[in-house]
Simulated assay, not measured.
Amino acid sequence: MNPVTPSAATPSGPEPGRATSPVRTGRGAAPLPGRVRTAPVPVGEPGGAGGRTVAPSPLDPGASQDPHGIHRRLREEFPLTYDPLLRAWVLSRYADVATALTDGRFTHGHRPGDPPCARAHVDVDTAALRSVTERTAYVLARRIAERPQADLVADFCHWLPAGTVAAAVGVPYRDMMRLVRGRAAGALAGECGTQIAVREKALASFLGNVLSDPDQVAALRDAPAALVARAWTESLRRDPPVQIAVRRTASEVPVSGGTIPAGSSVALLVGSAGRDPERFRDPDRFDPLRDDPGQLTYGPGFCPAVLLAGIEAEYALRALFAEMPRLRLADGFRPTAAGLITRAPRTLIVRPGG
Rank of each mutant, 00 (worst) to 15 (best):
Ala187Tyr: 04
Thr107Asn: 14
Thr99Pro: 11
Arg285Leu: 14
Arg183Gly: 09
Asn209Val: 07
Ala267Asp: 04
Asp222Trp: 05
Val246His: 14
Arg87Leu: 05
Thr25Phe: 01
Thr38His: 11
Asp114Ser: 14
Thr38Glu: 07
Glu45Arg: 05
Cys157Ile: 07
Arg248His: 09
Ser272Leu: 10
Ala267Gln: 10
Leu188Arg: 07
Arg18Ser: 14
Gln149Lys: 09
Ala184Cys: 08
Glu15Asp: 10
Pro31Glu: 10
Arg52Gly: 06
Glu146Arg: 15
Gly271Asn: 00
Arg130Asn: 14
Val36Glu: 11
Gly263Ile: 06
Cys192Lys: 12
Thr25Asp: 05
Gly263Tyr: 07
Leu348Pro: 01
Val255Thr: 10
Pro241Phe: 09
Thr249Ala: 12
Gly47Tyr: 04
Ala226Cys: 10
Ala141Asn: 03
Pro67Val: 10
Ile311Gly: 01
Val124Asp: 01
Thr10Gly: 07
Arg87His: 12
Pro40Ala: 08
Thr25Ile: 04
Val217Lys: 02
Pro42Ala: 13
Ala150Asn: 01
Leu236Met: 14
Leu220Ile: 11
Arg199Gln: 14
Arg27Val: 07
Phe78His: 02
Gly51Gln: 06
Pro288Glu: 06
Val4Met: 15
Thr136Tyr: 09
Ala219His: 01
Gly62Phe: 10
Asn209Asp: 15
Pro283Asp: 10
Ser256Met: 00
Leu211Arg: 02
Val228Asp: 00
Thr233Asn: 13
Arg142Phe: 08
Val41Ala: 08
Trp89Ser: 08
Pro325Asn: 11
Ile311Thr: 03
Ser264Tyr: 07
Arg238Pro: 06
Ile144Ala: 02
Ala150Ser: 13
Arg111Ala: 15
Tyr173Leu: 13
Val36Thr: 15
Thr102Pro: 08
Pro345Val: 11
Val306Asp: 00
Leu320Val: 09
Gly332Cys: 13
Ser265Gly: 08
Ser7Phe: 11
Ala100Trp: 00
Arg318Ala: 05
Ser264Ile: 10
Pro16Glu: 11
Ser272Lys: 07
Pro79Tyr: 06
Gly353Val: 12
Gly258Ser: 03
Ala273Met: 03
Ala128Gln: 14
Val23Ser: 14
Ala309Gln: 00
Ala250Val: 05
Asp213Thr: 00
Arg73Ala: 11
Thr297Val: 13
Gly50Leu: 06
Arg75Gly: 01
Arg343Asp: 04
Asp175Cys: 04
Arg181Asn: 08
Arg221Ile: 02
Pro3Ser: 14
Ala344Tyr: 00
Ala313Val: 08
Val198Arg: 08
Thr297Arg: 03
Pro22Lys: 05
Pro325Met: 09
Pro325Val: 12
Val198Asn: 12
Ile260Asn: 03
Ala202Val: 06
Val132Phe: 11
Thr53Met: 11
Gly13Gln: 07
Pro46Met: 10
Arg87Ser: 14
Gly28Ser: 07
Val171Met: 02
Arg221Ser: 06
Val253Ile: 12
